[in-house]
Simulated assay, not measured.
Amino acid sequence: MKPASFGYVRADSLDEALGVLGNEGAEARVLAGGQSFMAMLNMRLARPRVIIDIMRVPALAELAQRKDELVVGAGVRQARLLAMPGLERTLPLVAQALPFTGHVQTRSRGTVCGSIAHADPSAELPLCLVALKGHVHLRAAKSRRKVAAAEFFTGMMATAKADDEMIEAVSFPVANGEGTAFREIARRHGDFAIVACAALVSDHGIRLAVGGVADTAVARDWPHLEGTALDDALNAFAYELDARDDVHASARYRRELVRRIGRSTIEEAARCRA
């Protein structure tokens, strides 16, 4: 299929992009990597009047550590983040998850913030942002705000971003001695996850985030649990996610994956911490 007709603006500055977005509102869409958005255009699931290309805006290319967080600008491609020196020390969970994000070809074009904006519940980067309690930095022509990941994702491919806002950057808290692990089950490597789990184990306890089951990635915090206590917590979490049958897997299978993969991911994170 071919997309419906649209206007195209190649923004050279952030002010230009925000100006067009402010004027067009819901009729405009921001284009970064385009790995998901172009498919939606071709299937006419998205029919914007204007597309704003932001990939030549220098202000959106930032990839830098600020104090205790890593800030990733809207123009940073996934491959660039994965190749960042020291990523396995700064953001070990993201370093573990990024190789599962699509394929080499898509990571070379797709952006980190684009995946966050797309808000697919099976995607790895939104899951990591929720697991790490990261933030989304939103910008409009006359305002800016910082939204916690758990509040940004409001439903399946739905977010708290207003029509006149764009994601300027996302920020991930840097590692602080906790053990981390990431695992997912998919039909093929690079496919969207049937179930994905991201775990952090620290002095304060256990944090497990699960994607691919509910309409958004969901995280739970527990004290240090072992044996049947951990099994009971995982079982309750699996049912709280309200899994549904679909063409990829049954709800029962997804719940079992949450229990099994969740436990093995937590155990791996605990070993990494040790």
Rank of each mutant, 00 (worst) to 15 (best):
Q35G: 00
C197D: 06
A209C: 00
M166S: 04
R139N: 02
E256H: 14
A229W: 08
S36C: 02
A4T: 11
A28F: 05
E62P: 10
F100M: 10
T106Y: 04
A274E: 13
S36W: 02
R107V: 02
T106F: 01
P48A: 04
R255G: 03
I167T: 10
V71W: 12
L60I: 11
G22S: 15
E27Q: 15
M156A: 15
D203C: 00
P173M: 09
A61W: 11
S115H: 04
A274P: 06
V9C: 07
F172G: 07
G205F: 01
A233H: 04
L98D: 06
M166N: 07
D191R: 05
F237K: 01
A186H: 01
G212T: 08
R139C: 14
R29Q: 12
V195D: 01
L82K: 13
A217W: 06
R207W: 06
M156I: 13
Q96D: 13
A274S: 12
A169S: 15
F6L: 02
R89P: 08
I266P: 05
A269Y: 08
T159E: 06
R144P: 11
V30G: 05
A214D: 08
D120M: 07
S108G: 13
A74Q: 08
V104L: 12
E88G: 10
A186T: 09
A39Y: 07
A123D: 01
R66P: 11
F37T: 02
V247Y: 15
L82C: 10
D12Q: 15
V258D: 02
K133D: 15
L200H: 06
L127V: 05
M40R: 08
A251R: 08
A199L: 08
A11E: 09
R188M: 04
A4I: 05
M43A: 13
H103Y: 00
L70Y: 07
R220P: 01
T106W: 00
E268I: 06
L257F: 03
D53E: 10
V174S: 11
V76E: 03
F237L: 09
R255E: 13
R263W: 09
V57Y: 08
A117T: 02
